[in-house]
């Protein structure tokens, strides 16, 4: 069957969008394997930049910081967020609607503004800057995402399932273990991955809250680029992208499972 012209146009459009999105990333990934520092073609394949990266303590340390901050953020944000989602689902209380509505603006407010506000507040309140401040900031950023994702899952929960389990003789603990938790798990995992991604990819707030010598990977990359670009950055970026994409694929899988019945 011959494609109709509109169809053809749509395909070209799609191709352009994809190219626009992925070409720069592919180029960067390819260049991380090119021995020429000035991006000379044809590519002369090498792992040198990755070996160099392995000795770049600043980049590695900041990566470790990033992972540490992201993991602590994930644990705190998923536990608090899941607890909040359960409370929203199960209990009626004053200002519930207001609280639920208050979850959305932080997602829409530009990070630059949130970051400035946090910097001011942390300075004023004596919390100061550093990894602990970043964790606080990231948790605040990640919470709405976790609550939205977990709530979307909980909303589909049929309370009769718990009632049914009890009628079948399950103790309260058995109900939680065999019915409630397995149902919530995909939402919980998706929420946790979201929290991790929000923290790991965060630049603006981390930049504001970092202190010299202690920063996260995005901040370190930015600092390094300002000083002069080296393909080591391509290498670490490629690793991060590979990691982020894997994470997102997992999230989307769980998120879809969260939606089915």
């Amino acid at each position: 069957m011959k494609a109709r012209p509109t169809n053809m146009l749509a395909r070209i459009y799609l191709g352009l969008v994809l190219a626009f999105l992925y070409l720069p990333i592919l180029v960067m990934a390819a260049m991380s394997f090119n021995s020429s520092q000035f991006y000379m073609l044809p590519i002369d394949w090498t792992f040198d930049w990755y070996v160099k990266l392995a000795h770049n303590t600043r980049l590695l340390e900041s990566t470790r910081n990033s992972i540490l901050v992201a993991m602590v953020t994930t644990v705190i944000a998923s536990v608090l967020g899941t607890a909040a989602s359960i409370a929203f689902f199960r209990y009626e209380f004053r200002f519930k609607k207001v609280l639920q509505a208050a979850l959305f603006p932080p997602i829409a407010i530009p990070w630059l503004i949130t970051g400035t506000a946090m910097l001011l507040f942390f300075f004023w309140s004596g919390i100061g800057r550093g990894l602990h401040a970043m964790i606080l900031g990231h948790v605040a950023l990640a919470l709405p995402y976790v609550i939205i994702v977990v709530s979307a899952r909980i909303k589909g929960f049929d309370p009769d399932l718990e009632a049914a389990a009890r009628s079948l003789g399950a103790s309260p603990w058995q109900v939680i273990r065999h019915v409630t938790l397995p149902y919530l798990a995909p939402g919980f995992i998706a929420g946790a991955l979201f929290a991790f991604a929000v923290s790991f990819d965060q630049f603006v707030i981390s930049y504001f809250l970092s202190v010299p010598g202690v920063s996260t990977l995005p901040v370190e990359i930015y600092t390094a680029i300002k000083k002069g670009f080296t393909p080591e950055i391509n290498a670490i970026s490629t690793l991060v992208i590979a990691f982020s994409i894997t994470l997102l694929v997992i999230v989307s899988r769980f998120y879809r499972f969260g939606g089915d019945r």
Partner: peptide, 26 residues
């Protein structure tokens, strides 16, 4: 007691076998 719910309330993530086995398992 055994109870049947209006909307069946079957455990969606369990197979038929595991659903039926639930009362025995606990």
């Amino acid at each position: 007691i055994g109870m049947m719910f209006q909307n069946y309330a079957l455990f969606p993530n369990m197979s038929v076998f595991d659903n039926v086995a639930f009362g025995l398992m606990v």
